[in-house]
C-alpha cells in the first residue's frame, strides 16, 4: 500500500496539479472504492483491492484518463525533491545553516550554497539565526533534508513578512501555470514567493498592498472545491 509516486520531477514541481485539467473530482475517505475495473491504474493516494481502486487517504480523488490519484486536502507538509520551501534559520554549524522548514525532518543548507564566498566566521553575515530563506529541496535522506539555492527568487529573504497556509492548498495559490499568483502579484504590486511547505513570503511597496495580498491568498485557500477560481478572484479584487 505504498504511495506509488514518492519522487516528484525536479523541474516544474513548484507548480503542482493544474486547477481544471482533470475531470470528475470527488471527496473520498480511506478505504472507499473510487472506481472498479482492471484497466484503472492506482496512482498516488490509492491502491488496488481486487477489482477496485480504493482510496489510501482522505482527499480529492481524480481521474486523469485511467490514472487515479487522491490529492490531500488537509494535513502536514510532506517534503519532496525539488520543492521550493521557505524556512527559518535555527542554528549555524561549521558547515552550514540548520533551517526549520516545518517538516518532519530537519533541513540543512551547506555553506557552499551561499551566493558569494563566505568564510566560516562570516556565516552570520549572510544568514543569522531567525533569518528567513527560500530554498529548494535537493535531497531527502533519513538523517535530514539538504537544501540548495540555485534558482530564481531563492536565497535570503529581506523585508516583508511570512505567513502559513495549509500546504495542500499551495497549488491553488499558484494556479494553472502560475495564473493565480501572477494575478495577485499584478493587482497588489507585491513580490511573492510561495513555498510548497505552505509558508509564503510577501513584500510590497506599502503595508496596505501587503495586507491585501495576504487577504487574497487566504481567500483562495479557503475555497477547496471551487471551479473557475481565477475568474472569481478578478471579482474579489474589484470588491476589496
Amino acid at each position: 500500500m505504498r504511495n506509488t509516486i514518492n519522487e516528484a520531477h525536479e523541474a516544474d514541481v513548484d507548480y503542482g496539479v493544474p486547477e481544471e485539467s482533470s475531470k470528475k473530482r470527488k471527496v473520498v475517505i480511506p478505504g472507499e472504492v473510487i472506481v472498479s475495473g482492471e484497466d484503472y491504474l492506482p496512482g498516488e493516494g490509492s491502491h488496488r483491492e481486487g477489482e477496485n481502486v480504493v482510496a489510501s487517504r482522505f482527499g480529492l480523488a481524480e481521474e486523469l484518463g485511467k490514472l487515479i490519484k487522491v490529492l490531500p486536502i488537509f494535513g502536514a507538509f510532506i517534503p519532496r525533491r525539488g520543492n521550493v520551501v521557505i524556512g527559518k534559520v535555527t542554528d549555524i554549524t561549521f558547515h552550514g545553516w540548520l533551517v526549520d522548514i516545518d517538516a518532519a525532518s530537519g533541513s540543512f543548507l551547506p555553506i557552499e550554497e551561499s551566493p558569494k564566498f563566505i568564510s566560516k566566521n562570516d556565516m552570520e553575515q549572510y544568514l543569522a539565526i531567525g533569518d528567513v530563506v527560500a530554498a529548494k529541496i535537493w535531497s531527502i535522506k533519513s538523517k535530514g533534508i539538504d537544501l540548495i539555492l540555485n534558482g530564481k527568487g531563492l536565497g535570503k529573504l529581506e523585508g516583508g513578512f511570512i505567513f502559513k497556509v495549509i500546504p495542500s492548498r499551495v497549488p491553488r495559490v499558484i494556479g494553472r501555470e502560475g495564473s493565480m499568483i501572477s494575478l495577485i502579484k499584478e493587482k497588489t504590486g507585491c513580490n511573492i514567493t510561495v513555498g510548497q511547505n505552505g509558508w509564503i513570503w510577501i513584500k510590497g511597496d506599502s503595508i496596505d498592498a501587503e495586507i491585501k495580498a495576504r487577504k487574497a491568498i487566504e481567500f483562495v485557500t479557503e475555497k477547496v472545491h471551487v471551479e473557475g477560481l481565477t475568474e472569481k478572484m478578478g471579482d474579489w479584487f474589484e470588491e476589496n
Binding site: 500500500m1 504511495n3 475517505i29 480511506p30 478505504g31 493516494g45 489510501s56 487517504r57 482522505f58 482527499g59 490531500p72 486536502i73 488537509f74 494535513g75 502536514a76 495542500s168
Partner: peptide, 11 residues
C-alpha cells in the same frame, strides 16, 4: 487521523 491526510487502509 483521516482528516490529517495520514495514509490509512480504512477507518
Amino acid at each position: 487521523l483521516a482528516h490529517a491526510g495520514i495514509p490509512m487502509k480504512n477507518l
